[in-house]
């Protein structure tokens, strides 16, 4: 899947001047590839995801060619419907004919079977995030977008959700675009790292993560690669 956004500008509103959000962004996404977008906050990552999700149509560029891809989107906030139970929230995004076993399996994989009839306001943030991840996986997307889905979780919870996410993803790999500004997290998850400049956004550098999938929980290996990156490419230091 080819993605090429040539430019995206926000029109002037009130006293705010015209703002260029994306100057140039090109990415080739292979099937089943997990790509992490790393860049400073406010660099236009969420803008990019909203364009890819079809929420923002005011841009210059091209996505995928032909039919718009089916999207799963894990927003920065879980964005669950508070008046629908966990299970209803997931079922709502599915086609009517989807068998119940699909949802059962996903709930089980994310260890949420026991709370499936609970309303989201009674869940912890970590649990809500897991529900949002299930919802995105459940539609079996061509492209899965994740916008800092682990931000404001405490470290052990973030690790737990990350591990569950990896298990789920390895069962059924999708193309994933995962936005983060945590380089360690990106190295632990990604096949490919894309470093982005400050606004207006351009691609600074694209790198492949050489660590084997089964070694990603090894924090020493992740940290060693991170140090190596910072040494080899001093230009990425300013982005983090």
């Amino acid at each position: 899947m080819k993605i090429h956004i040539q430019s995206k500008t926000y029109p002037a509103v009130g006293k705010a001047a015209v703002k260029a959000a994306i100057a140039d962004f090109a990415l080739d996404l292979n099937a089943g590839e997990f790509v992490c977008l790393v860049g400073p906050s406010g660099c236009g990552k969420t803008t990019l995801l909203n364009i890819l999700a079809g929420l923002d149509k005011d841009y210059q560029g091209e996505i995928g060619g032909g039919q718009p891809p089916k999207i799963g989107y894990v927003f920065q906030n879980p964005r669950l419907l508070p008046w629908r139970t966990v299970r209803e929230n997931i079922e709502l995004v599915l086609a009517e004919a989807t068998p119940a076993s699909t949802v059962d399996a996903l709930l089980d994989a994310m260890q949420l079977t026991s709370v499936q009839q609970v309303y989201p306001e009674r869940l912890s943030l970590g649990m809500s995030r897991r529900v949002a991840i299930i919802r995105a996986f459940a539609v079996n997307p061509d492209l899965l977008l994740m916008d800092e889905p682990f931000v404001s979780l405490d470290a052990p919870t973030a690790r737990q959700v990350r591990e569950l996410l990896m298990q789920l993803w390895q069962q059924r790999p999708h193309r994933v675009l995962f936005v983060t500004h945590d380089l360690r997290e990106a190295i632990a998850l990604a096949d490919k790292l894309v470093f982005l400049s400050a606004s207006p956004m351009t691609v600074v550098r694209t790198l492949t993560v050489p660590i084997a999938r089964n070694k990603r929980n090894d924090e020493a290996a992740v940290e060693a690669f991170r140090q190596q990156l910072k040494q080899d490419y001093p230009d990425i230091n300013v982005l983090l």
Binding site: L55, F75, V139
Partner: peptide, 8 residues
């Protein structure tokens, strides 16, 4: 937005 993105 969520509803739009998931094609409600």
């Amino acid at each position: 937005e969520m509803a739009r993105c998931y094609g409600f």
